[in-house]
């Protein structure tokens, strides 16, 4: 009798996701859910969903969930973790949610060394609202609010969030990963799992930025989107560990 060597984690519900075909949100959901399950921490987990494409994440992560106002997930997560310190708390946020309206929240949570995990899914665009420019939209990248391509003279420069957060003394672990190929997906899983382990051991802030895709709003197919990410995002958003206090000891 053949044995299944890869099955869907129980930390994901049976609800089919609403994400567009090929949207990398689905991959990141799996990496987070698997990490929690493998660490045996599902019963302690409280996730905080953002406003954005992942606003429905509470339907997919099979644990207690809260839905934060746009940009406020790190604050909501702080409220949960400070009042229930024995829970494992994570936020799941898009680049618009975290780096634009929620910029003060994430920077302050990092400065406080909040003992939570924050996952930034960076696809360089606002997805749910239909493809507007985000803080991480690249120079020259077309969006519905940068129709002639992002112009730094008008809209400034794309934000390297991981490098920014790594400057905080309170940041414990900051890494940027990507999910464009199998090797990077496995690397992303390792980083996400490590973030949860660090939180479990009483450390924070743990921050993982996952470079992701948005086929629909980039106007390309799912596979072309992965290639676009490789050719455009990877050069500007360098992968790798930006800070790891544990590793330094």
């Amino acid at each position: 009798m053949s044995k299944a060597i890869f099955t869907k984690t129980k930390m994901l519900t049976d609800t089919p996701t609403h994400y567009c075909p090929g949207c990398a949100h689905g991959i990141v959901h799996r990496l987070i859910a698997e990490s929690i399950e493998e660490l045996g921490l599902s019963h302690k987990t409280v996730g905080v969903a953002p406003v954005g494409c992942a606003v429905f994440a509470y339907r997919y992560f099979n644990c207690d969930m809260q839905l934060a106002c746009h940009g406020r997930a790190p604050a909501v997560a702080t409220g949960v973790k400070r009042s229930r310190p024995d829970t494992l708390v994570f936020t799941y946020q898009g680049d618009g949610d975290l780096a634009s309206i929620g910029n003060a929240e994430i920077n302050s949570a990092a400065a406080r060394g909040e003992k939570i995990c924050v996952f930034l899914i960076n696809n360089a665009i606002y997805g749910m609202t239909g493809g507007q420019m985000a803080p991480t939209t690249l120079i020259g990248q077309i969006s519905t609010t940068s129709p002639n391509g992002r112009n730094p003279e008008v809209n400034g420069y794309p934000m390297r969030v991981s490098e920014m957060l790594a400057t905080h003394e309170g940041a414990y672990y900051v890494e940027r990963v990507a999910v464009n190929n199998t090797r990077n997906i496995l690397g992303a899983k390792k980083a996400i799992k490590k973030a949860f382990e660090y939180q479990q051991n009483g450390h924070g802030l743990n921050f993982i930025e996952v470079l992701s895709t948005c086929p629909t709003n980039w106007g390309v197919s799912a596979t072309e989107a992965m290639t676009w990410m490789e050719e455009n995002m990877l050069p500007y958003y360098q992968l790798g560990v930006k800070k790891d206090k544990e590793a330094r000891q």
Binding site: S2, A4, I5, F6, T17, Y19, I27, I185, L186
Partner: peptide, 17 residues
């Protein structure tokens, strides 16, 4: 398992004898 690892909808199960 590369296919299963990249599937955003976790639609693929992989078996081995």
């Amino acid at each position: 398992r590369s296919c299963a690892l990249t599937c955003p909808d976790v639609a693929i199960t992989v078996y081995k004898d």
